[in-house]
Design a protein around this nucleic acid. Structure first.
Lengths: 178, 178
DNA sequence: CCCTGCGTTCAGAACGTTTTGAATGTTGGG
DNA sequence: CCCAACATTCAAAACGTTCTGAACGCAGGG
């Protein structure tokens, strides 16, 4: 095989590994994805293991993760008993999956916890000494800032997630920070 | 101290730890930031170490990270030899710092590598066998997708970074994915 | 049935990261 | 100068995560 093809393949596979790491996934997952992405035909677990020089066990576990995240799909090859996989090539779709099922919850949880904090501080008002009341006031200001932050983050997330197919950035840019 | 104040403080400190982890930082960094954020007066290294029950060494190193990232600032307290720190409370500013000096480079590098790949494949054209040429074509398609992806990511990043003070989401939403 | 080829699981090893605490600066007061 | 009070550094230990490879399970063919 021509060296340019090899070089391009390798840098893409490595790059997908980095990207996976950035999103908090195992880098091997990214390399598997990259390998599939840069291969016109589906690949078997053994192909992947030997191609990336990693153990069969690791390939098996990481491919199941890739499947669960909608980043790879099983493909049936007639007359073959092996499992074959292809990459889902639409990176935006993949990232929307991830944002939707992971970051979304995180942001919602944060917003909920902050609201509960505000509620706690409000309802504790009577029982507080003057110094404590002052601190509570300070807490409320800081928490207000955090609420503003997470609310914008949530709005941005929903906007990206709401766009199906092509991302409509007109919607994103309408968000304003109070 | 009233339990509500303690509970709110703890959940905020823990939450900032999570957030730090999400952005690929040490969670202790986030907890230090949260502790400072929820304290009206500056705190010394010893205060932080005893408050979070971690070693002085860890506090020292993590506080320097926080300083480098513009998340905390040293404060001079008259008549004191200790170092005192406060949190920079504008989370958007902090995150803009991070995006600007970290993610920005990553995206630019990715885009550069992809361009180089395209160049390699183009200039190798003559030397390729028919099969290799077909594979090169396939590579070019996939790389085109990746380029589109990273270009949108770059545009989105620049938009967020371009906003100073309040994030202008009108700009963000003008981005379109081809 | 048993055998073979394949996928999955999991305990232990390998690895990278973070924490600790003792040693080592550094600074200012006396 | 020397001492005390602090900050910093760094090697070793602790810890969490990932990888491996052997054991196991399962299915289809002979």
């Amino acid at each position: 095989m021509h060296e340019s093809l090899i070089a391009v393949n390798e840098s893409t596979v490595a790059g997908m590994g980095r990207l996976a790491g950035f999103f908090g996934f195992n880098e091997v997952m990214g390399r598997l994805y990259g390998t599939l992405l840069m291969h016109p035909e589906p690949l078997s677990l053994d192909d992947l293991a030997s191609g990336l020089k990693i153990s069969k066990g690791s390939v098996s576990m990481n491919m199941r993760s890739l499947e669960r995240w909608g980043m790879a799909e099983e493909v049936w090859v007639r007359g073959e008993r092996k499992k074959y996989y292809t990459a889902v090539p639409d990176l935006w779709q993949v990232i929307r999956n991830v944002l939707n099922s992971r970051e979304r919850r995180e942001v919602q949880l944060a917003i909920q916890v902050l609201s509960e904090s505000v509620e706690k501080l409000r309802s504790a008002g009577d029982e507080l000494t003057p110094e404590e009341r002052e601190l509570a006031q300070f807490y409320l200001e800081r928490i207000g800032d955090l609420q503003a932050f997470f609310t914008v983050a949530q709005l941005a997330l929903e906007t990206v997630l709401g766009s199906d197919g092509a991302l409509d950035f007109d919607a994103v840019t309408k968000i304003e920070i109070g």
